[in-house]
């Protein structure tokens, strides 16, 4: 499983990235977590508001953050 956090570096993007990392850790998942900051890669997903969460190439949500518990349910 590959989890991507899309964001150009705003405070909320960091919040989401941290939440994803702690979710993966708590669940003991093997998922790979990547932070995507290049605008060209973000645009490829068609995302217009950051942060956004992408799991295995599919946009799960954009323009908001989530708690670690919410993310664990998606894993």
């Amino acid at each position: 499983m590959k989890i991507e956090v899309l964001g150009t570096g705003c405070a909320k993007c960091k919040t989401l990235y941290d939440a994803v990392q702690s979710a993966v850790k708590e669940k003991g998942s093997e998922a790979e977590v990547v932070k995507v900051e290049e605008i060209s890669k973000i645009m490829k997903y068609g995302v217009m508001s950051t942060p956004a969460l992408v799991i295995d190439g599919k946009v799960i949500f954009s323009g908001k953050t989530a708690t670690s518990a919410e993310i664990q349910r998606l894993l």
């Binding site: 150009t8 570096g9 705003c10 909320k12 645009m43 217009m48 508001s49 323009g63």
Partner: peptide, 17 residues
Amino acid sequence: TPFCSCSAVPLFIGFVE
């Protein structure tokens, strides 16, 4: 539409494209 200036770049590109 929710807007935060931190998303201005992807928003602008998404619009014009």
